[in-house]
Design a protein around this nucleic acid. Sequence first.
DNA 1: GTCTATACGGTGATAGAC
DNA 2: GTCTATCACCGTATAGAC
Lengths: 221, 221
Amino acid sequence: MPRAAVQTRTRSRSAGRAFRRRQIIDAAVNSISRVGFADTTLATVAKEAGISQASLVFHFGSKQALLEETLRHLSEEYEQLWRQALARAGPDPVSRICVLVASDFNPKVCSRKKIAAWQAFWGEVKARPTYLRICGNRDDERLAALAEICRSLPATDRDDAIDGDTLALFIDGLSDGLWQRVLVGSRPFNRQQALELAFRHLKVLIPEHREPIGIFETNHS
Amino acid sequence: MPRAAVQTRTRSRSAGRAFRRRQIIDAAVNSISRVGFADTTLATVAKEAGISQASLVFHFGSKQALLEETLRHLSEEYEQLWRQALARAGPDPVSRICVLVASDFNPKVCSRKKIAAWQAFWGEVKARPTYLRICGNRDDERLAALAEICRSLPATDRDDAIDGDTLALFIDGLSDGLWQRVLVGSRPFNRQQALELAFRHLKVLIPEHREPIGIFETNHS
DNA sequence: GTCTATACGGTGATAGAC
DNA sequence: GTCTATCACCGTATAGAC
C-alpha cells in the first residue's frame, strides 16, 4: 500500500475522531436543551447522536468528562467568534465595541438551544467549580478586551463621563441580561430584537459617537 | 377539652405544617446550591432538612412537585420584596426606580445560594415550560411596574430620549446581568458592588435626575 | 471503534409500624 | 406525621465479541 494512501487514511481517521467528538458534543447540547440538564443521561445523548452509550464513554471516558468538554466547546466557540469579529473590524473604538456586542447575538452562539445549555452550566457552577475553571479565563479575556477598547474612547467634556472599565461592565452586563431574555421571557426576544436593544443601549452610553453605531445597526439588525 | 385549646392546637398544627414545608423548601434551595440541580435528589434534600425521604414525599407528593414549589417560593419571595419596597417608597419616579433596583440586590434574594437556584431553574426552563408558567406572570408584572414608572418620568429636551418601556428593559437587563456576575464571575461581585454599579448605570440612563439616585446610593450601598 | 449484554449502585416512590 | 424497610427501575460504567 503506497504511503500516500496510508497518510490519507491516517488523516481521515483523526479527522473522523474529531468529527465524532464534535458530533457527540452537539448531541449533548441538544439533549441539555431538549430534556434539561438534570435529565440528560448517557442514554439521551447517545440517542441524540445516533450511537451507543458505550461509544460515548469510549470517546470521553465518562459522562462528567463529556459535560466538561461540552462546556469547553461552547466557550471556545464563543471566543473564536468575538476574536474573529474583532480581527475583521477597523480601528475605530466604537466600531470595535459594536462588533463585540453584535457577536454576542450571532446566531452561532445566541440560539435558544445554546443559551439553555449555557444557563444550565452556570446553574451548576457553584456546585462544580470546574465549570468555572473551564470558561473563566476566556470570560476574563473577553471583558478585558472590551474594557481596553472602552478606555481608548476619546475623552469627552461631559461631567458624568464613566471610566472604560465601568462602561465595559454596563455593556457586557446588558448583553448577559438580554441573552437571558432570549431564552426565558414569557414572550422571549428574538436575536434581532435583542441586538437592536443592545445597540440602542450603546447609543445612550456613548452618545457622542452615535453615527458608527447607526451604521452597524443597519448592517446587523 | 375547651374549644380554645382545640383551636390553638389546630392553629399550631397548620402553622407547623407550613413551617415544615418551608423548612423543606429551604433545604431544597440549599441542596441545589450545594450539590447542583442535577445531583439534587430526595436523599440530599432530606439530609439537608434533617428528616426522612418519606416525609418529603408525604409533604409534597413527588420530587417534581417539591421542585416546582421551591421555584414558586423563590418567585413569591422576590415579588413580596419589590412590592413592599415600592409600597414604602415615595411618589417620585426616580426614587421608585431606585427602590426597585435596590430590591434586586437585597440580601434576601441576592445571595449566591439563591442566585444559583434561580439559574438552575432557568437552565431547565426550555425543557420544562412549567417552570416558566410558575414565575412568568410575576416576572411580567414586575417589568410592567417598572415600565409604568419609567413612562411617568418627566419628559426631557434631549433629542436621544428613550421611551419608558425601553428604559425599563435596560434597567432590568443590567440587573439580570449583574446578578449573574454575583454568582459566576471569576472574581464575583458582592452585593454592594453590584448595587453600586446598577445605580451608576441609572445615573447614565437618567442623567437629568441625578440627585435622588445619589441619595439612594448612600442609603443602600 | 462500535456494538450488545450486563454488573451494580443509587433513585423515586410505597408499605406499614408507631 | 414521621420513621424504617423495601421495591422496581434507571443511572453510569465495564466486558468482551466483532
